[in-house]
Computed example of a mutant assay.
Amino acid sequence: MTNFSNSYFGKNLEELDYSDITAFFNAEKEESDKIEFKAYHPQFGNLGKNLEGVIRGICAFLNSSGGLLIWGAPLAKKLHDITIFQGNLSPVSDLLEKDSLISRISDSITPLPINININILEQDKNYIYVFEVQQSNYSPHQFKNTYWARLDGQTKPAPHYLIEALFKKITYPNIEGYINLEKFGSYDHKRSYLDISIIIINFSELQNEYDVSYRVLCPQARFEGSLKPSLSPNYQMQGHEFINNGHIKILHFGSPDKLSQKLVFDLEEIQEKNQSEIDIVLIFGGKNSPLKFSEYKLNFSLGRISGNNPAELLSYKLENITAAEKQKKLGTTRENLLKTILKR
């Protein structure tokens, strides 16, 4: 994924603060195909109307090469036929909760978009919203029955040739996988358990997926099913890996597949040997979709743990990254991958 925030600010999106945006607009700035500025101002209507302009811009980035959108930027000015943005910010006066804002954006754009991140920056109850949007593998996307794109540094209705090209590039459905923590408890003073559910969802409205399979790995705990002879073929690595091949023959849009599993472990041993952490990795893919990873770390050093809502154990999660993205993150190249595989 492209780090647009680092390109413009020298910081990751989550590291930005209000002063970074203020300093950014001390100098004249122009929009481009990779960055868009949205002012918050009564001339654009109420909060809802202002937000529509933001969603339209996000839709355009999804259909183009991705980019950064700053909501609360200065009002545009014309200088020698060039539109520039400089000076005082026009911050949003309302604080919109991040999850509900993401939901509102997702509900407004079809098909369902992914890889949209937000940082909300606050100063004296004034708010700047910075959106980092990645190019979509599932474009073209629509907002209010129109396909939008970034063309010549502006958000414009996408021309027919671009829409046709975007349709042709769609080759695989968007499958997402999640681990949910359901229940934590103890059998005795030596053995604890954690019930998890494995959830696979197809978010592509017009494409089914077939023959979906997945693996779940947990180096610090064993799957209880591995202790039962009739189920043991589904487990490897001495019970630390659960394999589900061919269980999902067809996965329709909006009909999640959910399967429960139980992990068993010695909590005292985890706390002594593994710095109180457990790792869970879900690896999944289908006939037409790319291999993806969802990774989690659970921290058991928090003291009392809620048995019926152990979500508080989650200390880290990185969900639905493709194998290609993972290799890029790890710095894997063709050369060192071949060297590892071929051992020469």
Rank of each mutant, 00 (worst) to 15 (best):
S103Q: 11
A76Q: 08
Q271E: 09
E241N: 13
F223W: 02
G10A: 03
K156E: 05
Q207G: 05
S103A: 14
F143A: 02
Y172F: 14
A27T: 15
S7Y: 15
H189W: 09
T333L: 06
I35W: 06
D94E: 08
N126M: 07
A324M: 14
N274W: 07
G67R: 02
I58W: 01
S64A: 05
S93M: 10
D94A: 12
Q123H: 13
P140D: 11
L69M: 12
I305V: 07
E52Y: 08
I278W: 01
H80I: 14
K258L: 09
L313Q: 10
D211K: 07
E31L: 10
L318F: 12
K329Y: 03
K11Y: 11
F203G: 11
H80V: 11
R304T: 15
Y40D: 06
E241W: 12
T322R: 03
P310W: 14
E28W: 08
V92W: 00
K292E: 05
L318H: 13
T155R: 04
F167R: 01
E241L: 15
G66C: 00
T340S: 15
F37Y: 05
F242K: 01
K297N: 04
G286M: 03
Y296T: 02
N119S: 15
Y8M: 08
D188T: 04
E164F: 09
F203Y: 14
L89I: 02
S192H: 10
P159S: 06
I321G: 06
I105F: 12
G87H: 04
L95N: 10
I58R: 01
I58K: 06
L13G: 03
N50Y: 13
K34I: 15
V264G: 11
C218M: 06
P74V: 04
K144I: 15
D279K: 02
G45Y: 12
E241Q: 12
Q123E: 14
N115I: 01
I109V: 03
D188C: 13
G53C: 03
N26H: 10
E277P: 14
Y214H: 13
Y40I: 14
E319A: 05
H247Y: 15
Y147D: 02
F85C: 08
L112F: 09
N46S: 06
I170M: 11
K78Q: 14
P229K: 10
A158G: 06
T146P: 00
R304Q: 13
A165W: 01
S289W: 05
S260F: 09
L314C: 07
F131C: 09
N180L: 12
F300M: 04
A158E: 04
M1T: 07
T83D: 12
G331W: 10
S32Y: 08
I280A: 01
I179L: 11
K329F: 08
P310Y: 11
Q327C: 03
F300L: 07
F9Q: 01
N50Q: 10
L181A: 03
Y316C: 01
C59A: 09
V281C: 08
L151E: 00
W148N: 05
K258M: 14
E205I: 10
